[in-house]
Amino acid sequence: MGLDIKYCQSRGKIILLSIGGATAQLNSDAATFSQQVWDLFMEGSSPYRPFDDAIIDGVDLDFEQSSQMDIIQFANNMNQFYKSGKHKYYITAAPQCPYPDANLGNLLSQAHIDMAFIQFYNSGWCDNSKYGLPHWPESMNYYMWDAAWHNNSFANPNIKLYVGAMAGTGAGNPGSYVGPDFFANELKELQGNYSDSFGGAMMWDMSWAR
């Protein structure tokens, strides 16, 4: 894995460690856990580094339930570690599309997050499968995220917002899936309408892509 990580980075790819998930709970305190992540995966020191001397480029926070760990403090701690490092690091988050996200909304407003990979799937009314219906823009609420961006509702005023989609019908609720042509047209229109906040696309996950 370490060699693979370094190869991908040599090709300009950013490698992030995703923390959380649909049912994840973390009981660690933020100070201990942030130190462990820094030591195991970044420029810290540990005899147990799973990727040997490979250094990843940051962490992605995907908490779809409330976490017992203070994720805001964790993110702030990681940003402090980043300042002492020699590499460029990132913190990203993967909120669900209802704005504000129930579990990551406070994180986005109180900690510096570089990118938000918004899950416009498995969330019902704001899935991107609703995009383009007669009641647009209410059907897909990217406009609400863009409004928050322009209203300086995020701790990082330059955060970039990514539109997340399912890479295949098996990646989640099949009703949330949109095909590649539909998604490409959606992204093109969103980029044109919201060029300040728009960052690009996220797909979950590429193992489902065909």
Score class of each variant (00 low, 15 high):
residue 26 L to E: 08
residue 93 A to V: 06
residue 174 P to K: 10
residue 116 A to N: 06
residue 178 V to G: 08
residue 187 L to G: 08
residue 11 R to L: 11
residue 9 Q to I: 04
residue 18 S to G: 15
residue 83 K to E: 14
residue 79 N to I: 05
residue 180 P to Q: 06
residue 143 Y to Q: 05
residue 22 A to K: 09
residue 4 D to G: 06
residue 121 Y to F: 09
residue 151 N to P: 07
residue 125 W to P: 11
residue 175 G to N: 13
residue 159 I to L: 14
residue 119 Q to D: 01
residue 185 N to W: 00
residue 2 G to Y: 05
residue 116 A to P: 03
residue 93 A to F: 06
residue 151 N to E: 13
residue 112 H to G: 07
residue 166 M to D: 11
residue 69 M to S: 02
residue 189 E to Y: 08
residue 31 A to C: 00
residue 189 E to N: 09
residue 65 Q to D: 06
residue 13 K to L: 13
residue 163 V to H: 03
residue 54 A to H: 01
residue 99 Y to F: 15
residue 183 F to A: 02
residue 4 D to L: 08
residue 108 L to W: 13
residue 192 G to W: 01
residue 136 W to L: 10
residue 191 Q to I: 00
residue 41 F to S: 12
residue 122 N to M: 07
residue 125 W to H: 11
residue 107 L to E: 14
residue 56 I to W: 01
residue 67 S to H: 01
residue 79 N to A: 07
residue 173 N to V: 04
residue 102 A to K: 15
residue 57 D to H: 07
residue 142 Y to K: 02
residue 41 F to P: 14
residue 15 I to P: 05
residue 168 G to T: 04
residue 196 D to Q: 14
residue 72 I to W: 14
residue 192 G to Y: 04
residue 144 M to W: 14
residue 80 Q to S: 12
residue 53 D to P: 11
residue 118 I to A: 00
residue 24 A to L: 04
residue 183 F to M: 04
residue 135 H to Q: 15
residue 91 I to P: 06
residue 139 S to R: 01
residue 49 R to C: 04
residue 181 D to R: 00
residue 111 A to Y: 08
residue 74 F to I: 08
residue 98 P to M: 13
residue 191 Q to Y: 10
residue 68 Q to G: 00
residue 154 F to N: 04
residue 103 N to Q: 13
residue 138 E to S: 12
residue 138 E to F: 13
residue 185 N to S: 07
residue 23 T to A: 08
residue 137 P to R: 03
residue 74 F to T: 11
residue 195 S to D: 15
residue 164 G to V: 02
residue 54 A to T: 01
residue 52 D to P: 04
residue 97 C to E: 03
residue 12 G to E: 05
residue 159 I to D: 14
residue 194 Y to H: 15
residue 6 K to Q: 12
residue 127 D to Q: 12
residue 79 N to P: 13
residue 161 L to I: 03
residue 18 S to P: 07
residue 57 D to C: 08
residue 62 D to Y: 03
residue 3 L to K: 11
residue 75 A to G: 10
residue 174 P to R: 09
residue 79 N to M: 10
residue 35 Q to V: 00
residue 4 D to V: 02
residue 132 G to V: 01
residue 4 D to F: 10
residue 177 Y to Q: 04
residue 22 A to H: 14
residue 8 C to E: 15
residue 118 I to E: 00
residue 210 R to D: 15
residue 208 W to H: 15
residue 152 N to Y: 09
residue 8 C to G: 12
residue 47 P to M: 05
residue 208 W to E: 15
residue 59 V to C: 15
residue 6 K to H: 10
residue 140 M to H: 03
residue 200 G to D: 12
residue 49 R to D: 13
residue 26 L to Y: 10
residue 18 S to F: 09
residue 53 D to Q: 15
residue 85 G to N: 03
residue 74 F to E: 15
residue 22 A to C: 11
